[in-house]
């Protein structure tokens, strides 16, 4: 009798794959808007034409630019003037320390944010100066000279004090770009830093109160408490997070989340941080996966040989 098993196998595999295609790749392509990444090129921001001078930049940052009125620069010996919950009560969110801003954020983005924060951050729908809705970060109006040159100098200064771009760690990238609004409880990260282990319960509660005060300010500033990102690598996936980071409005129009302006390299580090939080065992999975596959293929070969031997007498 003709052996029908190959054709039966083809039929079974065909219907299984058809079902898989329809309910997975196809259905998800219909349900979710597809946003293409621009590779963090920030094409909408003007290109930089001036070459900055870090020494003049330093004078501006520390002096006429008035950056240090709100921002700390710890590497330059300028610690934060206020505790984070106090700063957030004043500005809505704690203004970032600028020590490594030059390495983590894109230069075009830094230029634009100094000049026009709401534009660079893509939150002009929330902050419209003409309606009196001022962004908490005051734009730099110039120190008397060529404003573009002055901004280029300031950015050059920030780049000169920052770590080298290849020295940016996942934690550094995440904390600077995301960590002042988002907690990652699985990495013990809160919006005001990693909670230390206190010996005294009173100290622990005092920390919690500061955190709650901080979160109240962000809630008022953003409209809701930004979500904990612990499992975002599984719930949103790398592509969504990347394109959302690059341009939040592209995925969720009207969102209060600002564009964070990270470089492509820093974005990769942020993803790595989120993978460490929500897909911690991915390396182990790949390694064990390979071993299991090898083992199971050997099992299948032995099972096949056993079958051949047993069935020799049956025909």
């Amino acid at each position: 009798m003709k052996n029908k098993e190959p054709i039966i196998l083809i039929v079974v595999v065909f219907f299984a794959l058809l079902t898989y295609y329809l309910v997975e790749p196809y259905a998800h392509s219909v349900m979710h808007k597809h946003v293409e990444s621009e590779g963090f090129s920030y094409a909408d921001l003007p290109t930089i034409e001036k070459k900055g001078d870090a020494t003049r930049g330093q004078e501006l940052v520390m002096g006429a630019g008035a950056c240090v009125g709100c921002h700390s620069i710890e590497v330059a010996g300028m610690p934060a003037a206020m505790e984070p919950q106090m700063a957030a009560a004043s500005y809505g969110v704690n203004p970032p320390d600028l020590s490594n801003a030059g390495a983590i954020f894109d230069a075009k983005f830094l230029v634009d944010i100094i000049k026009n924060p709401a534009h660079a951050l893509m939150v002009e729908h929330k902050f419209d100066a003409e309606k009196g809705q001022m962004h908490p970060m005051v734009p730099f109006y110039g120190a008397g000279g060529d404003i573009d040159q002055e901004i280029a100098d300031m950015v050059a200064y920030l780049q000169s004090i920052a770590v080298k771009p290849e020295e940016v760690t996942p934690t550094m990238a995440f904390e600077n770009a995301c960590g002042r609004c988002h907690a990652v409880s699985y990495e013990n990260w809160t919006q005001i830093g990693i909670k230390p282990s206190f010996k005294d319960k009173k100290d622990s509660l005092a920390f919690d109160i500061k955190l709650l005060e901080y979160q109240d300010s962000i809630k008022a500033y953003m409209g809701k408490l930004p979500p904990d990102l612990s499992m975002y690598i599984r719930s949103r996936g790398e592509h969504y997070i990347n394109t959302f980071m690059e341009n939040p409005q592209s995925q969720l129009e009207g969102t209060a989340m600002p564009r964070v302006g990270v470089t492509a390299e820093s974005a990769e580090k942020v993803i790595e941080y989120l993978e460490d939080a929500g897909d911690t065992k991915r390396h182990e999975r790949e390694e064990i996966g390979m071993n299991v596959m090898i083992y199971i293929v050997i099992f299948a070969i032995f099972a096949f040989l056993w079958k051949k031997q047993v069935w020799r007498d049956l025909h």
Binding site: G289, V292, M293, I296, V297, F299, A300, I301, F302, A303, F304, W306, K307, Q309, V310, W311
Partner: peptide, 15 residues
Amino acid sequence: SKDMMVVGIFLIFFF
């Protein structure tokens, strides 16, 4: 023996 052969192939797919 045939069951096990098919199970072997299934487990490759499963894992």
